[in-house]
Nucleic acid binder design. Sequence first.
DNA 1: CTCGGCCATGCCGTGAGACTATCGCCGATT
DNA 2: AATCGGCGATAGTCTCACGGCATGGCCGAG
Lengths: 285, 285
Amino acid sequence: MAELETRELEYFVAVAEELHFGRAAARLSIAQPALSKAIRRLESRLGVSLLERSSRHVALAPAGEALLHHGRNALNAVSAAAEKTRRAGDQQTHLRLVIKPGSDANLLSGILAAYARQPDTRQVDILFGGATDRAEHVRDGRADVALLYVPFDDMTGLDHETLTVEGRVAILPPDHRLASRTQVTLADLARETLPRWKGVRWTGAPEARQGPEVTDAAEALHMIRLGRTVAILPRSLAEPMHPDLVYRPVADAPHSELVLAWSQDDRRRLVASFIAAAVDAAGRA
Amino acid sequence: MAELETRELEYFVAVAEELHFGRAAARLSIAQPALSKAIRRLESRLGVSLLERSSRHVALAPAGEALLHHGRNALNAVSAAAEKTRRAGDQQTHLRLVIKPGSDANLLSGILAAYARQPDTRQVDILFGGATDRAEHVRDGRADVALLYVPFDDMTGLDHETLTVEGRVAILPPDHRLASRTQVTLADLARETLPRWKGVRWTGAPEARQGPEVTDAAEALHMIRLGRTVAILPRSLAEPMHPDLVYRPVADAPHSELVLAWSQDDRRRLVASFIAAAVDAAGRA
DNA sequence: CTCGGCCATGCCGTGAGACTATCGCCGATT
DNA sequence: AATCGGCGATAGTCTCACGGCATGGCCGAG
């Protein structure tokens, strides 16, 4: 059939990311000619040209774009399979939950308490993940469950249960022109400078100015205090609010959901039991 | 990192499916000792035992279950990457739509007509897929879009737009005890013998008797005429009804949706344009 | 007790893929 | 305009990982 070894995929992804055979070879700890040959083999096997090479530059051909994208998926699936197989061996004693610091809408302690009352409780290891890679942790098996935000996180390959639905608020410096309102609208914010959230696709109006790149709410708040930007955040992230900032509800912003997510094909009781406890605790709160 | 070559995965999947090294080796066209060694390498690399071997039998260890499942996913992802890369090369002139014969709720001709009016029309190739593998066709790139039924088909990895929502009807022999009703309920059907749909997880009441295994509606209808079973089908599959059968609405059955599905990460205009035409045509019907 | 089915082991041969050295192209520098 | 240097491709050699063959060991069936 369509043979394509994971090694070759890794090679190609490295080249496609670096757009430079030398650097990619170094990253892969192989020599550059080997990499050149491997990519050419790949191209002839697939029967398409993946890269446009000049002697100065390397660029992705259309088929290369496709392979970069789908190849990454495939590599993730392979390493997820490996990781999950390893874990399946030692019957798991700990449940690994990945969260973003401060982003639990104060629900986590209730969830953990509810889970502790379950009959088959296991120790819960809490991992901290960055803005973008918590979903990855679950997909590749480094964690069992994650707290994520819909519609911000990429839920591909994950199932989830909603824990809370909350409105979103604009975070403003006190002297901002909109700070005197009791609430604002997206239209009011359309001309504002909004931060670019690292790893999150741009969701603001296309005409809005893109401000500083930030990775988390703490950085965003800092930038707002400096007057460089304003931000729209789920309400729970706005409390307690920094004394030098104010927040106003954004009447028409899509709601944001805090969800508990797990790998789509994870049927372990360990996980099901935690989900049940979490949904229960969140419903009660 | 977690190296695991696709070749090894294929070997393992073959053994796990056959539960027999000799047959698996034959299927892979390699000799049996090579396969034995490959699997042991895999086990030592992963550090877990995948198979329980006696000299008579081979059985899956828990980690083996995990690897069989996730490994299949990974292999699918890899061959999908290969397939889609090949397709990306030659800019595609045909749109490939996979349907199940007779399962288009009479919408297809309208959809094709609407699509033909689009500015960037391409030729549409219609493929026929079995009950269970139409979604697979889309996932691995053999087709671009599929007509599927929610909640029966497995939508993993696919996005979809709903074309119609329809009630479901019980198909009965005319002399059936329920045939005199004008409508029936799921409770009425709880004790009936229902067919097992090949490749579809059992959705009937757990106490219902499981009847003959069938692969499509035509087979199911035949079995109903023989008095072996009764079935619950989306209404559109019941028209025109065979003269020797009757159908009655099932008042409380979950509705069934005919959807147009495509690969989650397919952003090609070719596909978007067809989706738009189909949704438009279905809304108009 | 023997036979036969089945997986494991040992040994050997081969070829895919890695390495080193080197070439050829082309843009940049002076 | 000539040279240099960066980068990818090519050539030739080597090696070791993986596959094949022969065989051993285990165990259930008859």
